[in-house]
Design a protein around this nucleic acid. Structure first.
Lengths: 256, 256
DNA sequence: CGACCGATTGATTCATGTCAACAGCAGTGG
DNA sequence: CCACTGCTGTTGACATGAATCAATCGGTCG
């Protein structure tokens, strides 16, 4: 593997898991950090193999026996519910774990939406490691808590009625992920295509298109192309995300 | 509350965690079972205290420091996003863990929607237990995977457009939970009120009401009262849940 | 250069949100 | 024990906004 081309924080020799600690606040609150120690990563590397998927490739299918779980090094993966591509339940990024929530068999189907590099960890040997390594198990717990929060935020997004709120919230989500990974281009990179977005945020594809256009027309965002956009009017953007709900941000401490 | 009225599988001396094993299929596939051994439950009982909340009581508030997590013995809890009661992200039932997905502070707010009995496990001492007990940690992982799946199903529910599909799916969810807990009355018990349902499935309260009435008019369900309903026409019910999508059930093995 | 797939845009329909009035139950106080 | 009052839930009329259908455009790959 060419070490230079990928995110430095995800490399350096072995699987990397980015998440927050559920119980103790880290140095940068709200910002996921590397959970695994160098030693853990090195040990995991001995049981892991590097696999690559090209854009659009299926990583596993729901219902298949769980042979391995994956840890993304680079690229983006979509996780779809059920055997069929019913609905996108999650986008997975570098530092994420893939194929966990199973019961002897994968419950979701995973597909690469960009070229993907990942570590493949066979469940059998991983399970043995886990049963002996309490710290590693703890880190898996941390990661699962993070995934759970992420999924809850997704549910929150889906609960909104207005298209603008959904799209803006989605963009904000992408932006925050990039900030967390220290890739602030000033603009937001959108790896997935419009139909994936539509699926994820629970709207029709035309509605997504329209919403992007409307926000651009109003000067809230600027779309350089289909995969790169930029927030021009940050205030208006945040206002849309807040969606009708009065801004209940910092201005509320011990009141209520 | 009289001790005899509670679910026997949740009692018998200590915290109980109901979930599936992510990697190995249990005796009854798809059916959550007790993860903790009697010994584990007994040991946890020594660090746990029993707490009771009356209907509507707040269990914890988002943003508060995470002092303890809870394990529900009886009753139903709603978990709302954020400090405010923004949106219901989950309903928690006996055997569920409460207050896990946090980062030094609770991220969600929890409130009892029926009288609730629960074990209270202080995080400090629990953390010490976890770091020494790999098996217990493994069981927490199992539970988290189950919660994750549950939340993904919630997202799936929210993604649907038609009101009937949402309500029917929600009822099915409640029914499955009751079946998993061996409480098949023949009718579905709905612990939460209409506004909670509306919040959870992402609809307005009037729309929920209408949908219940329409399904009753069509003879699909029968509403004994606000908290008890029954599926009359199972075929029509399943058809609604499948929602337009052609029934892609068993009739699809090695095709595609 | 041509064809195909993803994306955009437009016209139309209809489901659901919203607002508002009412009904039914529950808890309260006489 | 009964009446009152307040809240939760029901029902109706109306408007809005997104889904749907369908045509076109643009980029990409052969």
């Amino acid at each position: 593997m060419p070490a230079g081309s990928e995110n430095p924080r995800s490399n350096g020799g072995g699987p990397a898991v980015l998440a927050l600690d559920p119980w103790t606040a880290g140095p940068a609150p709200g910002k996921p950090h590397q959970l695994l120690t160098e030693e853990e990563r090195a040990r995991l590397a001995t049981i892991a193999s590097v696999v690559r998927f090209k854009k659009g490739a299926e990583i596993y299918r729901g219902g298949d026996p769980t042979n391995a779980i994956f840890n993304i090094v680079s690229g983006v993966v979509k996780s779809c519910s059920g055997t069929d591509g019913d609905h996108i339940v999650a986008f997975l990024f570098p530092g994420d774990l893939l194929g966990l929530s199973a019961e002897g068999a994968y419950v979701n189907s995973a597909r690469a939406i960009t070229p993907v590099t990942a570590y493949r960890l066979p469940t059998a040997v991983l399970q043995r490691r886990l049963s002996k390594d309490a710290l590693l198990e703890y880190h898996v717990i941390c990661k699962l808590c993070q995934e759970l929060r992420q999924t809850q935020r997704h549910a929150l997004l889906l609960a909104h009625r207005r298209a603008e709120v959904k799209v803006a919230t989605f963009l904000q989500l992408l932006e925050q992920l990039q900030l967390a990974r220290d890739e602030p281009d000033g603009e937001i990179y959108i790896p997935m295509d419009r139909s994936d977005i539509a699926d994820y945020i629970g709207m029709s594809l035309p509605a997504v298109s329209r919403t992007f256009r409307k926000m651009a027309e109003r000067g809230v965002i600027a779309n350089r192309n289909r995969h790169h956009t930029k927030v021009l009017d940050r205030a208006a953007f945040e206002r849309i995300v807040m969606g009708g709900r009065e801004a209940r941000g910092v201005t509320k401490s011990a009141a209520e």
